[in-house]
Design a protein around this nucleic acid. Sequence first.
DNA 1: ATGGTAGTTCCACTA
Length: 256
Amino acid sequence: MKITTWNVNSVNVRLAHLEQFLKEESPTVIGLQELKSISEKFPIEACEALGYHAAINGQPTYNGVALLSRLPMSDILFDIPGFEDSEKRVITATVGGIRVINAYIPNGQSPDSDKYHYKLNWLQHFKAFIEAQLKRYPELVVIGDFNIAPTDDDVHDPKSWKGKVLCTDAEREAFFQLLDLGLIDGLRMEAQPAGLFTWWDYRQNGFEKNSGIRIDHLLLSTIVSRRFVTSKVHLEYRAMERPSDHAPVSIRLKKD
DNA sequence: ATGGTAGTTCCACTA
C-alpha cells in the first residue's frame, strides 16, 4: 500500500502532473491540498479514467482538499465535525482498512496576524478530531500540508526562519501535541540525509538552491507504523516545468 | 529591511 500527500496549488493547472503521477507512481491513495477549485470543476473524469475513485471537498479560489483512491472509499467525512469553519481544509475516508485524514492546515501568514490565531485555534480542534477518530479507527494516518516545520532540521536556514510563521514555538508545540496522541512522523521512521524538504519558494530559485522546508507530513498511528517500509519525497515533480511549489511525498506500507 | 513568484479573481489577496 502506498499513501501520498501533495499540495498541488491548483488541481486544474496541475492536472497533467497529477495524471503523470497517478500513472507512474500508482499510489493506493493520494491526498491533495489547495485544489483552488470548486468540487464541480475538479477533473474527476481524468482521475476515474486512470482507475481512481474521488472524494472532493472543494471551494472557490482558496483551500480545497480531495482524496483519490484505487480502492473504494467508505465513511467519507467532510471538514471537522462540530467546528464551524468556512474554509474547506479536511476530508477523511477509510481505504483498505486504514482511516486516512487529509488536511490543509492554515498557513497563519505571520505571528502577529489574525490568521495565525486562527491557525492555532484550528489546530486545537484538529487535535480533538484526530483523537476521536483514533479511538474509533486505530489504523489511522494523518496526511497533508501541515504548514509547520517541526524542528530546525526541517528548515534550510534556521536562523532566517527563527520566529517566523511555520517555525514558531507555538506551532511546533501544536505539531508535537498531535504526535503525543500516538502518531509517528513517517519520514522520520528511517534515517534521512540533511536537507530533506517538501516545499520550496517559487522566488529566488528556491528549489535549485534547495532552500526549502519540510511542512508536508504523513503521520502514522502506532499500529500502522509497524507496517512501514519506506518513504519518499518525489523531487522530480517539483523540478518540472510550471510545478506546484510542493513536492508529492509518499510512504509505503506492508500489506498487514 | 525588502522583495522576489504563482494562482485566482476582478485587479487584491493568499501563500
